[in-house]
Amino acid sequence: MKLYHMPDSGNSYKPRLLMAKVGIDCDLVEVSSRDGSTRSADFLARNPIGKVPLLELDDGRYLAESNAILLYLAEGSRFLPKDQYQRALVHQWLFFEQYSHEPNIAVRRALKIYEERHVLATPQRLQETLEGGNRALQVMETRLRQGPYLVGDEMSVADISLYAYTHDAEVGGYDLSLFPSVRDWVERVSEDADHIVM
C-alpha cells in the first residue's frame, strides 16, 4: 500500500500511528497542500477532494478521509471492538473529532504555525477556536475520568484519531494542565509512539 501524506498534518499522522501500532508496512508518498501538490492533476485523479491523507490499496483502489482510513486499517485488530455497541461508540468519537475537536484544535494550531494562515488569525477567530477547543477537551475530560480510554478499557482508533491533534494542542495555545485526565490519556496513548513523528 501507499499512503499519500503531509508530514506535519495531524490527519496524516493518524494512519501512520495506527500502522506503526498494528505493524502494517506502507510506502509513504509526501505531498502537501502548502506547495500545491495536492491540487495537481495527478493527485486530483486519485482524490478529487485534493486532501491528504490518501491510502492507495494494493489493488489500486483509493481511500480518503483519515478516520475512514483508520477504520479500514483497524479491521480485525484490537483497535476496533467486535461488540456492535462499542463499535458505534468508536464511530461516535470519530464524528466528534471531525465536528467538534478538529475544527477548533487543529485549526487554531494551523493558524499559529503556518505563516500563510496568519492573516486569518484574527483575535475573534483565535478566541472562537480557543473556546471551542476547550469545550471539546472538557468533553474528553469528562469521559476519561470514567476510564482509561475513550471506548471501554482498551485503546481503539477513537483514541488514535483524537490523539493526533490533542497531543500537541499546546502548540495551538491550549493548556492541558486544565484537563488532567486528558493529559494522562495522552501519556498512555503515546507509549511506543514516540518514534512516529508528526
Rank of each mutant, 00 (worst) to 15 (best):
K2A: 08
L3M: 02
Y4E: 01
H5V: 11
D8K: 12
G10Q: 01
Y13Q: 10
K14R: 10
M19D: 03
V22D: 11
D27R: 10
V29M: 01
V29D: 06
V31F: 07
S33Y: 10
D35G: 05
S37L: 00
T38P: 11
R39Y: 08
R39M: 02
R39I: 09
S40W: 04
D42I: 10
P48E: 08
P48K: 11
I49K: 12
G50Q: 01
K51M: 09
V52W: 04
E56K: 01
E56G: 04
L57S: 14
D58W: 00
D58R: 08
D59V: 11
R61S: 06
Y62K: 11
L63Y: 08
A64P: 00
E65W: 00
I69V: 07
P81V: 03
K82L: 15
Q84D: 15
R87Y: 08
R87W: 10
A88N: 13
H91Y: 09
H91A: 12
Q92V: 07
L94D: 07
F95E: 02
F96W: 10
F96C: 00
E97Q: 13
E97S: 04
Y99H: 14
S100F: 10
E102Q: 13
P103E: 01
P103T: 09
N104R: 03
I105A: 04
V107N: 11
R109P: 08
A110L: 02
A110P: 01
E116K: 01
L120G: 11
L120P: 11
A121C: 12
Q124S: 13
R125I: 13
L126W: 01
Q127F: 09
E128D: 13
E131G: 03
N134W: 03
A136D: 11
L137D: 10
M140D: 05
M140F: 12
E141S: 08
E141F: 09
R143I: 06
P148I: 06
L150G: 05
L150T: 03
D153V: 06
E154N: 14
S156W: 02
V157C: 02
A158G: 02
A158D: 03
D159K: 10
D159S: 12
S161I: 04
L162A: 11
Y163N: 05
A164K: 04
H167C: 03
D168T: 15
V171A: 04
Y174D: 11
L176N: 10
S177L: 13
S177Q: 09
L178M: 14
F179G: 01
S181R: 12
R183V: 07
V186H: 05
E187K: 13
R188G: 05
R188H: 03
V189K: 04
S190C: 12
E191R: 13
D192T: 12
A193D: 02
H195L: 11
M198Q: 14
M198C: 13
